[in-house]
Design a protein around this nucleic acid. Structure first.
Length: 631
RNA sequence: CGGGGUAUAGCGCAGCCUGGUAGCGCAUCUGCUUUGGGAGCAGAGGGUCGUAGGUUCGAAUCCUGCUACCCCGACCA
């Protein structure tokens, strides 16, 4: 955090030097409050030149920027009222606390207070990446179209890719991700297996032209991402890099004090490859995270395997047609026929590969998992529901009355749907359903697959425990790309036999700006944000009571400020001439973890009031115990 | 892309229906008082009412086009 350099520092007035301390060999440390620099720092100076109490010029051999800031020299802009377009609490609080300002749809400026948080998140991510042996690079945000045409993504990516032309009418895009660029670098730079494995990463602004940006920086169009890419020879090496990143990611989110889960994720079109998403748990999260009460299993909803229990019951009823006028949904059906939704089947028609439509059959109380369905070879990708005409052609009825009986199209049933006996389903005739239906008797045994979303209480796929479902915010994603890009772009190295081998790649992302927002979603109360220490804009704040009138309070607050700074605490000294209530409210909204109050009343007993942002009450402590409260 | 909504001072809103000198709260500035939970009083500044056109003696208000933004859905991850 320290920047060291030699510089000549102008001290505009003697008053700006308000304290000197700690003579250390031939150096003197001088605290300067203002002047040439915008904020406080320690100047380490040659003693013969440190005429600190007089205005003038001071030669400093070394300038060590120290943490801390005076509120009067910072920019604090809080509001009482919530902007009406902010929906979720992190967005509201970030605006109210003056962390971010909106420029346009999905575009945000980071104000000084917010940028402090962003930089701290970034620093932790950078440190953990470095510690894991990754090497930082910085690639252009603008990328030539040729690279994307080479990988095939220029056509595939769609409107989310912001494309533009330069003055020569050459095509470019604003990078939503950097696989192409990094692969291009790798194929030029990496020639020998001896150079592997290598892991490059960058922390950089990305742009994705989201259809509907929302929730402030949680889902913005321009955002800051850490994206890393490993290059490996062989799958074992890739797995090793992947595992290292898994550890690094756990370290990052642990250090940030976030409650998160690493979950198995669907890896999309790259079949079988390993993929882990890191979710910060919060009720407002856009994703469903599934985890097992025992055995450590965790997956996202798309991926979580549904385990079917029990066996099919005997067929006791005869199949019969029932009149169900006006019934279009499972819920209406269950009410009208007085049966449980779990005794009903719902049949969905989707576009197939070999046939125009395929029927997917689920239990009435279960939801189709579109990702699982999409992966089935019989089903067209992307998953497309059949339109009204196609339904009419295949089932001779409207969408609310389809059933598997008598259909001459492929039928795929979810495992739980296949275990029903004496069930209710659509009759392929409007306003009619069938009851007492049984597989194998009234219609052929179906193809059985896992088609559904898991539900709370399902048995865990790992054998012990049951599944729970919570909401999560995806802040990180690591996955094994394999040779997808290195193959299409020809990134090879020579192996020990002198033969070219296509490199294996891994891809590792962290949403930096989203992580900051996610931390707020997880840590707030009715007063504002409660920052985890590691990413708080300031670690502590000093609130002097009525400092304008009391020299004693001013002196004590200044001394405390110096002491905390000297201890390396990132402290905010709220020296604004505010009434206590306004000051407290601001600091609680901003969410600074530790608060120290200095007042005449307390000073009389050599005491300080301390309050942890999470604590229900403040407490009075001895002046000497201040540091112990923070570290 | 479909549906709904909004656009008036930095922020939050009223005024529009029923056309007639643009208002309130917060914030800002000045002064005095106040100082342990978003202070009080007095005063001040700040808006070509999103934009272009139309109707009218007269438009924030009625009509039309456009633009921007928000919400729901679809899409994406």
């Amino acid at each position: 955090m320290c920047s060291n350099s030699a510089a000549r520092v102008k001290l505009s007035t003697p008053a700006t030097v308000w304290n000197t301390c700690s003579r250390r060999s031939d150096m003197i440390r001088v605290y300067v409050a203002t002047g040439f620099f915008h904020h406080d720092m320690i100047l380490v100076c040659r003693p013969q030149r440190t005429t600190c109490s007089a205005p003038g010029s001071l030669y400093c051999s070394q300038i060590t920027e120290i943490k801390g800031m005076r509120a009067s020299q910072f920019h604090i802009s809080t509001t009482k009222e919530t902007p009406n377009d902010a929906e979720i609490v992190s967005h509201q609080l970030m605006l109210r606390a003056g962390f971010i300002r909106r420029l346009g749809s999905g575009l945000y400026s980071w104000m000084p207070m917010g940028l402090r948080v962003l930089r701290k998140v970034e620093a932790i991510v950078r440190e953990e990446m470095n510690r894991a042996g990754a090497l930082e690079v910085l690639m252009p945000a603008i990328q030539p179209a040729e690279l994307w045409q080479e990988s095939g993504r220029w056509e595939k990516f769609g409107p989310e890719l912001l494309r533009l032309h330069d003055r020569h009418n050459r095509e470019y895009c604003v990078g939503p991700t950097h696989e192409e660029v990094i692969t291009d670098i790798a194929r030029r730079e990496i020639k020998s297996y001896r150079q592997l494995p290598l892991n490059f990463y960058q922390i950089q602004t990305k742009f994705r032209d989201e259809v509907r940006p929302r929730f402030g920086v949680m889902r913005s169009r321009e955002f800051i991402m850490k994206d890393g890419y490993s290059f490996n020879l062989g799958e074992a090496s890739l797995q090793e890099s992947f595992d290292q990143m898994h550890v690094a990611y756990c370290n990052m989110f642990d250090r940030m004090g976030l409650e998160y889960r690493a979950v198995e994720a669907d890896s999309g079109s790259i079949g079988g490859a390993m993929s882990r998403e890191f979710h910060v748990l919060a009720d407002s999260g856009e994703d469903a995270v599934v985890y097992s009460t025992e055995g450590g299993y965790a997956a996202n909803m798309e991926k979580a395997a549904a385990i079917s229990q029990g066996t099919r019951g005997d067929a006791n009823e005869a199949m019969r047609t029932v009149e169900t006028p006006g019934v279009h949904t499972i819920a209406e059906l269950a009410v009208q026929l007085q049966v449980d939704e779990s005794r009903c089947l719902k049949t969905l028609l989707v576009q197939g590969v070999d046939t125009p439509v395929v029927a997917l059959v689920l239990r009435g109380d279960h939801q189709l998992n579109e990702v699982k369905a999409e992966h089935l070879p019989e089903i067209a990708s992307p998953l497309t529901m059949a339109d009204a005409d196609a339904i009419k052609a295949a089932a001779n009825c409207d969408a609310g009355s389809i059933g598997p009986v008598g259909l001459s199209i492929p039928i795929i049933a979810d495992a739980d749907a296949a275990k029903l006996s004496d069930f209710v389903c659509g009759a392929n005739e409007n306003d009619r359903h069938l009851a007492g239906v049984n597989w194998g008797r009234d219609l052929p045994e179906p193809e059985v697959r896992d088609l559904r979303n898991v539900v709370e209480g399902d048995p865990s796929p790992v054998g012990s425990g049951t599944l729970k479902i919570v909401r999560g915010i995806e802040v990180g994603h690591i996955f094994q790309l394999g040779d997808t890009y290195s193959q299409s772009m020809g990134a090879t190295v020579l192996d020990e036999n002198g033969k070219p081998q296509t490199m294996m790649m891994g891809c590792y992302g962290v949403g930096i700006s989203r992580t900051a927002a996610a931390a707020i979603e997880q840590n707030n109360d009715d007063k504002g944000i409660i920052w985890p220490m590691a990413i708080a804009p300031f670690e502590a704040v000093i609130c002097p009571i009525n400092m304008v009138k009391s020299d004693a309070v001013k002196a004590a607050a200044e001394a405390l400020y110096a002491e905390l700074q000297a201890a390396g605490i990132d402290v905010l000294f709220d020296d604004r001439p505010l009434r206590p209530g306004a000051m407290f409210t601001d600091m609680e909204l901003i969410g600074i973890p530790h608060r120290f109050v200095v007042s005449d009343k307390l000073l009389a007993n050599d005491e300080i009031e301390y309050r942890n942002r999470r604590a229900p009450e403040s407490e009075v402590i001895a002046r000497a115990d201040v540091l112990a409260r923070i570290v």
